[in-house]
């Protein structure tokens, strides 16, 4: 495969993680402009783990996810009391704070006669794991997509599970969800933690893909984009944000004629879709219709069997 194609596909894969992270919060009705902070935390944590501490990549990625998730929970507990615009502003402020802290963050040690580690605004270079271990770009691409597949499978299970239904309930009507016996606060913090961990994995992969990170990578542009991917692609399925990433990086970025106007087209697309399709291209209705169509044509689909139980034993009589 062509190196450039591998590069673009790798980028799509890595950015998908942060898009999914923002998507999960969108499901619970929260608009976060701060997911790039957890992406950054994951990137630095995983990069430090392999480059400075000599950890294997798998462990480093898990570590990045854990730190990202823990940070998100800590931030989530106070901020999730806020709603709408206030929450958005709080997350934005937090993310900028994290970025500035990374500009001040220096932690370097000498390895093989060279200083390695985060060096404030100059960034963190030489996260050389894939070179030290002879992993070529294509293998790393496979790794990204294997992990993405696992995460997507997790989302498929989530959507079918009670937890997924609860997340959507909270997103649609928080008060009503509370009246179904659902603890709003617990579930929101849980969603924040999972989304922080997702962004953390993405950050860890990004750091090892590019081999260097610097604070300004994680500015608000990244957060706004990750949010926009779900809003463009659709909130009906986890494939929605992936579609958004594909449209942005895959199509707009790759068509050279468009590249100079990319931000204008992207911004216009977001504005247009928010008016025409407020919940994105693949919204709940579309997903539902596709699902129904699939059940109709597929011989394997589980048919909802109406059970044979006594239909009147609920309250003991005929309606």
């Amino acid at each position: 495969m062509d190196d450039y194609l591998i590069g673009v596909l790798s980028n799509i894969g890595v950015i998908s993680f942060i898009a999914l992270s923002a998507y999960l919060l969108l499901l619970t009705g929260e608009i976060s402009f701060g997911q790039q902070a957890f992406f950054a935390i994951g990137a630095y944590a995983a990069g430090i783990a392999t480059a400075l501490w000599g950890w294997p990549l798998a462990l480093a990625l898990v570590w990045g996810a854990a730190i990202g998730g823990a940070a998100a929970v800590l931030v989530g507990i106070p901020t999730l009391r806020l709603h709408g615009l206030y929450f958005a502003i709080a997350t934005l402020a937090f993310a900028e704070m994290v970025r500035i802290l990374f500009e001040l963050f220096r932690y370097q040690i000498t390895i093989d006669g060279e200083l390695v580690g985060p060096d404030g605004a100059d960034g963190f270079r030489n996260i050389r794991y894939i070179f030290d271990n002879n992993i070529d770009a294509f293998q790393f691409l496979l790794l990204i997509y294997a992990l993405l597949a696992v995460v997507l499978l997790g989302f498929v299970l989530l959507e079918r599970s009670r937890l997924g239904v609860i997340f959507r309930m909270i997103g649609e009507d928080e008060t009503l969800a509370g009246l179904q016996g659902v603890s709003i606060a617990h579930h929101k913090v849980l969603a924040a933690g999972i989304s922080g961990a997702l962004a953390g994995i993405g950050g860890g992969l990004y750091a090892h893909l590019t081999t260097y990170v610097e604070p300004r990578i994680f500015d608000v542009m990244l957060g706004v984009h990750s949010l926009a991917y779900g809003l463009i692609g659709g909130l009906g399925t986890a494939l929605g944000p992936l579609l958004g990433v594909l449209i942005d990086i895959g199509v707009l970025e790759s068509i050279r004629a468009l590249s100079g106007y990319r931000m204008i087209i992207f911004g216009g697309l977001v504005a247009l879709l928010l008016i025409v399709r407020p919940r994105g291209l693949l919204d709940e209705n579309v997903v539902h219709k596709i699902g129904r169509f699939w059940r109709r044509i597929s011989p394997w689909a589980r048919r909802p069997g109406l059970n044979t139980g006594n239909r009147n034993n609920l309250t003991g009589g005929r309606p």
Binding site: R160, S161, R162, L306, N307, G309, N310, N312, T315
Partner: peptide, 23 residues
């Protein structure tokens, strides 16, 4: 509990749906 509910719980929902003519 989290993935689809037990059989009896599902049946209970189906019964409720039938009772309210929503099956």
């Amino acid at each position: 509990r989290w993935l689809g509910g037990s059989r009896s719980a599902r049946e209970e929902i189906d019964r409720t749906l039938e009772f309210f003519d929503l099956a």
